[in-house]
Design a protein around this nucleic acid. Structure first.
Lengths: 302, 302
DNA sequence: TGTTGCCCGTCAAGAAACACGACGGGCTAT
DNA sequence: ATAGCCCGTCGTGTTTCTTGACGGGCAACA
């Protein structure tokens, strides 16, 4: 981004030109005052920035004297920002969920937007920090964990090696010294994290994580023709098939999310829009990798 | 953020001090070179920035001559950034999904992180732009829509008034002129958007959207004691209950997401971790609001 | 029909930030 | 021992920005 327009302009100027482009794109209008206030510069400097932007992209904006604001022109073309709808929407959700503050973004009036999911507990940044440090240093640390499987002892020592996001939750993949096993820990359930010490485990022995498999998906044939066609387009399938490559340990979450773990005809087809064609292969590969991993760990510790 | 430390420092300097804080917090280390390159400033200027940061927070960083990098000191306390774990994680997902570029963030080496969900089609930023303009102008526009219900005519004229996110998808709430009805349209399924004209509908007649209801949730009693306790903590319940207020039209998605629309004992309790205690009340309120809305629209159009 | 207020723009002078060049010190690898 | 790369600092000149002053256009108010 910094080098695209000209090497000559400084970083701060570049950001302000980008701001103009951002506002024109999303809001369709902005003020000299907006520019001056969000960046803490004088009105004169803002004027000169606007002049500079106009020189770069003459057909992008028009000053409306009645509205007292610059407006997006019909011939507008984004010049400095690469508009990503997902990024924009993501920021709005982040604002609504109080993950970011509106002042930290460039939005003026946030459009009417809502997030329907249930708000779970916030993840503690310091705990995440400890986990990341442990991953980078290949270390282990003690955590306090509220298990849903009902394990009575909340304190465990784990050696994490990766983070992942599945079904709306964050997990850390880690070696458990108590269970002599690689497991997934829900970040929301970790209450405390202790100091980091050296870990003895080799993470490449986590075969369920290291090995990947192709999941072959298709629209549920119980759906109507047109419904299947809509899914075909939404998931960008080729010839009625969608092949995604995932780590073995992560296939579990995809199967949960899309109800592949429920027997057919138990649920209405609307709740099983996709079917997993090679389900047995996936499940077998997962259990096999688990066995091989346990054997390899056993051999390594001897 | 801009005003917290000192009114005297300029916006650009503030951002660079924030960058130092960011890197110390998440990576635990940074270089003078990192600072100079990400902001396009000279090494000398970077040195002076580091000196300024050190004056603000003396106990936060230590220069390690062997590593040739500044390191996070044990007494580190965040000074300029308000660390939000969710924001951090969100950015990493955005990078992985190509919604943002790594150069646009302040990350050095992104930690091992993955997103397990199926990648759906990208939302076209220009379509989102048209929808937002229509919402702001209270206008209507023609869209091309791939319906999953199998409607044969893909072109519709809608008057949108809000966006929302549910179960991993984005929807627009809009009046449909063909159906004389307020409906939800999946953003992924909108292929084209036409020009905006004036709309004739009053959005306050969308009773299913305007009216809210309390959903009373509890852990599934079929789960074990400790499993219920874990859910209690994760959702921050009080006395075994979680009350969330949602718009009537949005309750549908929560019921889908948490399988409240499946009869009890059909699924294993692990797939119905929460139960909706006032399910009948919610469903009745929804259908009643729909009837009232249709009547009111009919009266208004006479 | 002025008057006020709030936009915008521009010219000129001084302050602040920043770049460039040059120099010195410390560590590591060859 | 030499080279290379990291850090810091002292000058000097350039760019950016601020402050102050002035003028024009539109809308709301008496």
């Amino acid at each position: 981004m910094t080098e695209e327009i000209g090497e000559t302009v400084r970083w701060g100027v570049q950001r302000r030109l980008e701001f103009i482009d951002f506002r024109l794109f999303w809001d369709g209008r902005f003020n000299r005052r907006d520019l001056a206030e969000t960046f803490g510069i004088s009105a004169q400097q803002a004027s000169s920035d606007i002049a500079q932007y106009t020189a770069l992209a003459p057909g992008n904006l028009v000053y409306d004297q009645t509205l007292k604001a610059y407006q997006r022109a019909p011939t507008y073309e984004p010049k400095l920002m690469h508009a990503s709808a997902e990024r924009y929407l993501l920021q709005l959700v982040a604002i609504e969920n109080r993950w970011m503050r509106q002042e930290d973004t460039w939005f003026d009036n946030t459009p009417p937007i809502e997030n329907v999911s249930l708000l779970r507990k916030r993840t503690d940044a310091r705990i995440l920090l400890h986990l990341l440090d442990a991953i980078n240093q290949r270390g282990q640390l003690e955590i306090q964990y509220k298990s849903i499987t009902g394990s009575p002892e909340p304190r465990r020592v784990i050696a994490p090696h990766a983070l992942f996001h599945a079904v709306g939750r964050w997990y850390v993949r880690a070696w458990s010294t108590e269970h002599s096993d690689f497991r997934d820990y829900n970040l929301f359930r970790i209450d405390q994290a202790g100091d980091i010490t050296a870990a003895a485990i080799d993470h490449t022995l986590d075969f369920e994580w290291m090995h990947e498999i192709d999941l072959i998906l298709a629209p549920n044939p119980a759906l109507s023709e047109s419904q299947q066609a809509a899914l075909h387009a939404e998931y960008d399938m080729t010839e009625g098939r969608l092949v995604v490559t995932k780590r073995l340990s992560q296939t579990f979450y995809l199967m949960t999310e899309h109800n592949f773990d429920v027997a057919p005809d138990t649920l209405p087809p609307g709740k099983q829009q996709l079917v997993l064609l090679n389900r047995d292969e996936v499940v077998n590969a997962r259990t096999t990798a688990r066995k091989l991993s346990i054997d390899a760990i056993e051999r390594a510790s001897r």
